[in-house]
């Protein structure tokens, strides 16, 4: 088990190094830290002097080493647009995205588990067919289109829902301004989280159904039936437990999908979170911020995937013996 955790950890460090190398080479190639510092109204000679002073004429890998060292101390450079350290900008936007993802996750968990289980237990019933049909339609509607429809119906036509922004916020502490504790903030949260749920929910309903159906076919479930156990006990205790494991791993993989969909949802609702920040950084060619976002998201992503793998290894001995899925 220890060897498994170490191996997983080393792999995570390696992936982070690759991400940081990519990030750094982008910054190295297209970013201009001198412009970011002094603007464009400084003479060429002064710029050259500044370049030398900042060590921008050093070999690539020496600069990369310096970049890594600074990154480990939580310094990823300054944002050209915000005139602030990029890490500060990212941390100040992160709570907005976290709140959106948090509410969406709750909605997805609350709905996908009962729906998925129902469809797996009674695959032939009308309601199951309806749910599965709806889920195909659900995955076929792009999230930005759902968002636009919601805005058109509830904001433009009916005028009952706010169409953009986060509304009234409460300061919780540090970088965290929350919209979860005011009526206005919650109201602003409704449509973005529904849009995001509309695309994530069908994925998980289908996943839970497929896994559960596979488990229900297995030998030990047949044995449980033969033993004469109550159906409820078989479904919810014996079968469901073994359905959860693969759902957790595949769910971890879906994190990347969630990040992508968050970018789309946030850009439609102008939700002041990380995704919107990313789109703005691209439009403004704010390279430092762009790279910091990539490294930050990469870090969160690798961290969560590694944790999921380790938890999976802890509960499922088969994984740690062979070392892979």
């Amino acid at each position: 088990m220890f060897a498994f955790i170490v191996r997983r950890f080393l792999q995570a460090v390696f992936v982070m190094l690759v991400i940081s190398l990519i990030g750094f080479s982008i910054q190295h190639q297209i970013g201009d830290p001198v412009r970011d510092l002094v603007g464009i109204s400084v003479s060429k000679k002064e710029r050259e002097a500044l370049r030398e002073k900042l060590g921008l004429n050093d070999p690539f890998f020496i600069q990369y080493g310096r970049f890594l060292k600074k990154a480990l101390h939580g310094d990823l450079g300054r944002s050209f647009f915000y005139k602030k350290p990029a890490v500060d900008v990212i941390l100040s936007k992160a709570p907005a995205t976290l709140e959106l993802v948090f509410v969406t996750s709750i909605l997805v968990i609350v709905f996908s588990i009962p729906l998925g289980i129902y469809c797996a237990i009674f695959p032939k019933k009308f309601l199951s067919r309806l749910i599965m049909g709806a889920s195909v339609v659900g995955v076929s509607i792009p999230v930005f289109l759902t968002a636009i429809m919601l805005i058109y119906i509830f904001s433009v036509k009916l005028g009952v829902m706010p169409s953009f922004g986060r509304g009234e916020l409460v300061h919780i502490g540090g970088y965290w301004y929350s919209g979860l504790f005011t009526w206005d903030g919650l109201k602003h949260l409704v449509m973005p989280s529904i849009a995001l749920t509309s695309i994530m929910l069908p994925l998980f309903v289908r996943l839970i159904r497929a896994e559960m159906m596979e488990v229900l076919e297995s030998e030990y479930i047949r044995f449980a039936w033969a033993k004469g156990l109550k159906p409820k006990r078989i479904w919810f205790v014996h079968a469901f437990k073994n359905t959860l494991l693969p759902v957790i791993t595949v769910g971890g993989v879906q994190l990347g999908t969630l990040i992508a969909f968050t970018i789309l949802t946030e850009s439609v609702f102008q939700w002041q979170g990380l995704g919107f920040l990313f789109v703005e950084a691209v439009e403004r060619a704010d390279t430092t911020l762009l790279v910091s976002y990539l490294i930050f998201v990469g870090f969160v992503f690798v961290l969560i995937n590694t944790l999921v793998d380790i938890i999976y290894g802890l509960v499922n001995p088969m994984v740690r013996i062979t070392g892979k899925k």
Binding site: G256, L290, L294
Partner: peptide, 21 residues
């Protein structure tokens, strides 16, 4: 490794980088 990053995420990042480039 490639699968664990979703397509859409990778595609968004790469195009953003290319556009900046």
């Amino acid at each position: 490794v490639q699968l664990s990053f979703s397509t859409l995420m990778v595609a968004i990042f790469i195009s953003a980088i290319f556009q900046a480039f």
